[in-house]
Amino acid sequence: MKIAYALLGLILLYIYVSIISLLFSGIDRKLVARMQRRIGPPILQPFYDFLKLMSKETIIPSTANFMFKAAPVLMLATVIALLAYTPVGFPPLFATKGDIIVFIYLLTLADFFLILGIISSGNPYGRIGAAREVAMLVSREPAMMLGVFAVMWGISKLNVEKPFSLSSLYEHNIWELGPMAWIAAVVLIYVFLAWLASEIEVGFFNIPEAEEEIAEGTLVEYSGRYLGIIKLAESIKEFIAASLVVAVLFPWQLNMSGIEGYILNLVIHTLKVFVVLLVSKTIFRTVTGRLRITQAINVLWTRVFAASVVGALLLAMGVML
C-alpha cells in the first residue's frame, strides 16, 4: 500500500517537475533576453519547442547503433527514478539510510547514458563533445560529493533518524552547527553554485555543447522525438541538481502537517530553486563566456574542489571542537 502511494507520488511529482522545469527555462530565456535589451520569446516557449520536437520526423544516422535510440529513453528513465530520491521541500519518497549515494549515482548515470547515446551516433563532433563531457563529469563531481558528505556527516552527529539520507537534511541543517560551520557554509555556497553551473553546463562551463565551436557537440545528431526527450530530461535534471543545493544549504521549510503542508512546502521549495537557478544559471550565463576545456577543468579542480576541501575541513573542525 505504501509502495502504491509512493508510486502515485512519483508520478505526480514527475508531472509537476516537468512543467515547472520547462517553465523555468522559459523564464530564464525571457530574463536573459531582457538583460540584453531584447524582448525574447514568450514564457511558454519551451513547451512549444517540446511539442514541435515531438511531432518532427526523427532521423537516425546510418552509423548509429542500438544505444542511439535507447539512450534518451534510459536517460529520462534515470531522471524520473532520481526524482524519487530528490528532496523537494519534504523528505524524498524513497528515503532510506545512505540514499545520498543512490542520488549521486543516478545523477551521474543520467549523464553517462547521454554520453553513450552521443558516441553511438558515430559522429566525430559528437565524439569530441562526449570526451569533453566525460572530462567535465570527472572533474566536477568530487567537489560536490565532498561537500555533501561533509554536511551530512556533520548533521549525522546531531542524532538524526536516517544518517546519510537526504531526508536528514530536513531534521537538522548546516546552520545549526555553530559559527565555524557558518563560515564553512559560506564557502560551500560558492562550491555548490559553481558545481550547479558546471552540472547544467552554463556560462564558463557550456563546453560540451559549444554551439559555435563544435556544432552543438553532444546533441549534434539528435533530432525529433529523441531531442525532445533529452531536452526534457536535461531540464528536469537541472531542477533536481538545484534541489540538492537548496536542500543542503537552505532547507528551511514550514512545519505544517497534512496534504496542504506538502503542497505548500513544495511551492516554497520551487521558489527557492528558482532563486538558486536565477543566480547560477541566468545571471551567470549572461555575464560570462565559455572557457576552454583545459581551463574549465583547471578551475574545477583548483578553485572549486580546493574550496570544497577547505569548506569540509572547516565544517569538520566546527563539529569536532
Partner: peptide
Amino acid sequence: YIRVLFTFFGRP
C-alpha cells in the same frame, strides 16, 4: 571498461 565501451559504441 569505459574505454572499451567507447570503442564498441563508436563509429563502425
